[in-house]
Simulated scan of single mutants.
Amino acid sequence: MKSKKIWLIIVPLVLIALIIGGLLMWQNKVKEDKEQALKRNRKYEVSLVKALKNSYAGIEEIRITKPNYTYPPGSWSCDVEMLFTDNKKIKYRIGHSLDEKQNYNGSKTYEQDDFLSSRKGKTTNSIAIHYSDKKKGAQ
């Protein structure tokens, strides 16, 4: 009788410990995944900024929002907004690969495409960058 009471206490305690342990492991996994996503996005964002600077002249500022990475095949895209030295802005969705040195891609209207085509060239000066994680930088 006494051993049954002990089992009635031990079994629920073990189950509770297993559940808590599982939740902590799951929470750690979610945290690690988020950190990896932030690192991956920063890597792509820095590469994209370099490619855009090699593609268009007169860029003053770039804002990057809504990054998206797909599994598989592993394509990456974001919304990009560029401000040029003549105070004109453009915002569109763009895909990017890390091996691209220039980037003329994107989901653009004909008007946006004409706008960017007239600015083809290279930006050599330092520009302000607003990354998707709300941090700021220059490149």
Results as ranks from 00 to 15, higher is better:
residue 67 P to T: 08
residue 120 K to T: 11
residue 15 L to A: 15
residue 71 Y to H: 14
residue 133 D to F: 08
residue 48 L to F: 10
residue 123 T to G: 04
residue 50 K to M: 12
residue 10 I to A: 13
residue 88 K to R: 09
residue 43 K to C: 04
residue 47 S to M: 05
residue 36 Q to I: 07
residue 99 D to I: 08
residue 3 S to L: 10
residue 58 G to D: 05
residue 19 I to S: 09
residue 77 S to C: 03
residue 86 D to G: 01
residue 95 G to A: 13
residue 63 R to W: 14
residue 129 I to H: 04
residue 67 P to Y: 00
residue 131 Y to K: 03
residue 85 T to D: 13
residue 21 G to S: 09
residue 39 K to Y: 06
residue 133 D to L: 09
residue 126 S to D: 13
residue 135 K to I: 10
residue 87 N to Q: 14
residue 41 N to L: 09
residue 8 L to I: 03
residue 65 T to Q: 09
residue 15 L to H: 02
residue 6 I to T: 13
residue 112 Q to F: 04
residue 117 S to Y: 06
residue 73 P to E: 11
residue 111 E to T: 11
residue 132 S to Q: 08
residue 118 S to N: 11
residue 128 A to D: 14
residue 9 I to G: 07
residue 12 P to A: 02
residue 5 K to S: 12
residue 116 L to I: 11
residue 57 A to W: 05
residue 121 G to T: 06
residue 33 D to C: 04
residue 139 Q to Y: 15
residue 33 D to P: 03
residue 25 M to K: 07
residue 127 I to P: 05
residue 11 V to C: 06
residue 32 E to W: 07
residue 101 K to Q: 11
residue 8 L to V: 01
residue 113 D to G: 02
residue 13 L to S: 15
residue 119 R to P: 00
residue 114 D to F: 07
residue 39 K to P: 04
residue 78 C to M: 01
residue 31 K to W: 08
residue 115 F to I: 04
residue 9 I to P: 02
residue 105 N to S: 13
residue 35 E to Q: 10
residue 57 A to I: 05
residue 107 S to G: 05
residue 24 L to R: 12
residue 42 R to K: 15
residue 31 K to P: 06
residue 134 K to V: 07
residue 31 K to R: 12
residue 65 T to W: 05
residue 40 R to E: 14
residue 58 G to Y: 01
residue 10 I to T: 14
residue 117 S to P: 00
residue 137 G to L: 04
residue 10 I to D: 01
residue 90 I to G: 00
residue 123 T to F: 08
residue 91 K to N: 13
residue 125 N to R: 15
residue 132 S to E: 11
residue 134 K to I: 09
residue 31 K to V: 10
residue 106 G to M: 05
residue 116 L to W: 03
residue 20 I to Q: 03
residue 38 L to P: 04
residue 69 Y to Q: 03
residue 50 K to G: 09
residue 130 H to T: 10
residue 82 M to Q: 03
residue 81 E to T: 14
residue 75 S to G: 08
residue 54 N to D: 06
residue 39 K to N: 13
residue 110 Y to Q: 15
residue 113 D to P: 02
residue 98 L to A: 06
residue 98 L to F: 09
residue 49 V to L: 07
residue 9 I to Q: 06
residue 42 R to C: 07
residue 59 I to R: 05
residue 33 D to K: 10
residue 13 L to E: 02
residue 78 C to N: 07
residue 105 N to H: 12
residue 2 K to E: 15
residue 25 M to D: 07
residue 12 P to T: 03
residue 83 L to V: 03
residue 102 Q to W: 00
residue 94 I to N: 02
residue 21 G to E: 08
residue 4 K to Y: 13
residue 115 F to W: 00
residue 89 K to W: 02
residue 120 K to V: 11
residue 104 Y to E: 05
residue 22 G to Q: 08
residue 54 N to V: 00
residue 8 L to H: 09
residue 28 N to A: 10
residue 128 A to C: 04
residue 120 K to C: 01
residue 78 C to S: 15
residue 92 Y to L: 03
residue 11 V to K: 04
residue 63 R to I: 11
residue 87 N to W: 10
residue 120 K to Q: 12
residue 105 N to Q: 11
residue 91 K to P: 06
